[in-house]
Amino acid sequence: MFLRKRLAHMLPVLFGITLVVFLMVRLIPGDPARILLGTHATPERVTELRLALGLEQPLWQQFFLFVGNVVRGDLGDSLVYRRPVLEVILERLAPTLFLIGYAALLSLLVTIPLALWAALRQNRLPDQGVRGFATLTLSMPSFWLGLNLLILFAVRLRWFPVAGYGNDLRQHFWHLFLPALTITLALAPMLIRSLRSSLIDVLKAPYVEFARAKGVSERRVLQHHVLRTALSSTVTILGLNLGWLIGGTVVIETVFTIAGMGSLVVSSIFARDYPVIQGVTLLFGVLVVSINLLTDLVYAILDPRVTYE
C-alpha cells in the first residue's frame, strides 16, 4: 500500500524532470550540429545535419517524440557515440556506483566505532577529539583534499595508482581507494555528528537503563538496543547524502580522472549531446527517488517504532 502510493508519487516528479531537462538543454546556446561538424563546415552543411538529426522540428514535436520513446524504454541514440544512450550510460554507471557504494561502506566503517567511542565518553577527550576531527574534515573542500591525497599517496609515496578504475574487482578496490577515502572524509563527519547525538539520546532512554538493570551484558545492550535504534537516523542522513553524492562525484571523478557518470555529464553538456544529457538526468532522478524510497524502508526496518499507515 505504502509502496504503491510512493511509486505513484514518483511519476509526476519524473515527468517534471523530463520536461525541465528537455527545455533546459535546448535553451543553452550552442548547436550540436555545429559542434559535431567543426569549423570548416559551411552554413548549408550545418542546416543539413540539423535536419538529419531532427533538430529542425518544432519543439513540442521533439518533446512528444522523446517522451513517447522514454515510455517505451528508449532513451534515443547519442549524437557523439552513435549508440543507444542507455548503453553508453550503463557503461559509465558502474565506476560511479562502485565508488559511491565503496565510499558509503568506508564511511560506515569509520563512523560507527568513532561515534560510539565519542558517545560513551561524552565531553571527555575522545569525544572532543572525534568532534574536532569531524569539524575539520567537514571544512575541507573535497577536490582539494583529493588532490592532496593524490600528491601524497600516489605521487610521492606511490602506494596507490594516480588514476583510473582498474580491470577486475581487486583492482577496483585498489584504484578507487583514494577517491573513496576523499568522499568518506566529507561524508563521515556528518554521519558521526548525527550518530553521536542520537546515541547519546538513546543511551539515556529508559529501556536501555532497564536492560542494564536486568543484567544484560554491556556489549549486548550496545549492539541490540542502542546501536540499532540510533543507526536509523544515520541511515536517513546517509540516504539523503547518497542522492547528493551521485550528483557530486563529478568533481572527485575529475580529480582522479575516473571515466564515470560525472565525466559523461560534463562532456555531453560541452558537446550538446542532447539525448545523453536528458538520459543521464532522468536516470539520476530515478536513482535519487529510489534511494529516498529505500532509505525510508530501511529506516522502518531498523527502527521498530516507525510505521507507515
Binding site: V110, F133, T137, W159, R170, F173, W174
Partner: peptide, 19 residues
C-alpha cells in the same frame, strides 16, 4: 591530529587487504 591517525589506520588496513 585525529584525522591523520584514522587516515593512516585505514590506509594500512586497505593496503594489507588489496596489495
Amino acid at each position: 591530529m585525529k584525522h591523520r591517525i584514522v587516515g593512516v589506520w585505514l590506509v594500512v588496513w586497505l593496503v594489507g587487504l588489496v596489495l
